[in-house]
Nucleic acid binder design. Sequence first.
DNA 1: TAACCGTGGTT
DNA 2: TAACCAAGGTT
Length: 352
Amino acid sequence: MRDEEISAALLVWYDRHARVLPWRVGPEDRKAGLRPDPYRVWLSEIMLQQTTVAAVRDYFRRFTARWPDVVALAAADDGEVMAEWAGLGYYARARNLLKCARAVVAEHGGRFPESRDELLALPGIGPYTSAAIAAIAFDEPATVVDGNVERVIARLFAVEAALPGAKPDLSALAARLTPRDRPGDHAQAMMDLGATICTPKTPACALCPLRPVCRAHAAGIAANLPRKVPKKAKPTRRGVAYVARREDGALLLERRPERGLLGGMLGWPGSDWSEEPAPAPPLDACWTEAPAEVRHTFTHFHLVLTVMTARLPADAAPERGNFHPRASFRPADLPTLMRKVHDVARSALEAD
DNA sequence: TAACCGTGGTT
DNA sequence: TAACCAAGGTT
């Protein structure tokens, strides 16, 4: 079967089985002339980087309700955007989201550029996202290659070389299938197929529109592709977090540095995270160790945090951090690790 | 180039 | 339960 016929079969499947997503214009509406809002396409693509659709849904709804267009987002307060992103992870995305919105306003008059190269020059937009926005929002015949597409292509052409080394080969093969007509729907169809049929562990080949032309299925090795180089084991680090509560209920928090882990997010003052962390209380007080530890796993290490709590007098003067009044403190504004620390500390502070 | 950067669901 | 995995980008 020719490449064009494979693409056509995929679009027929997509017309019937496309997922309904808050940021998507479905195939019927698309063919009727509707186009998605580039702002919503961009926002969804940033949120979806290494993140599942289920996790993104509510964040997308809250962001678009609060900041309906790129001009509004560009004018937003940094802390409010970081708080709204809290829990979604990879916080550099949120910092770059603001940089990008402000660049679109300052350098492009508040409208997203339509070419892949101009999109690629914006903060937080890399090879995948630039192609996705160009194809989905602007109908450019850009080839979109994400983890789904890599998997679909590796199986379709039975590519046995391991990722990430095989990525250039997979991209070249994916480019052969990119149609001049409906490139955006083609990209979304490839990703929907990978997410719902051509899944990592046990692909539903019986339901796949490309099964008749899939070389991995013919060879009986679909579930074994794509091959990947094994990942390194995660080391375990330890640390101490300090939760101080003033008489009036105010809590001592500090804004983390822009760069690095949880950069730009609110957190509890604490030690370094290492094999043997040095204690680093933010002020002299009667610190009590909480009865439970906090365990959390990041991308490249496990973390075990000891939680220390203290009650402070009204005139306490900490060396680090700022007091946040009880009325305005929301655990949901914290990254998940810090939320876990709060849960443990609250139990300890209330368990008199 | 390879390390860094979150989190929650699935297996 | 531990490993795997998800619409990657930056340095």
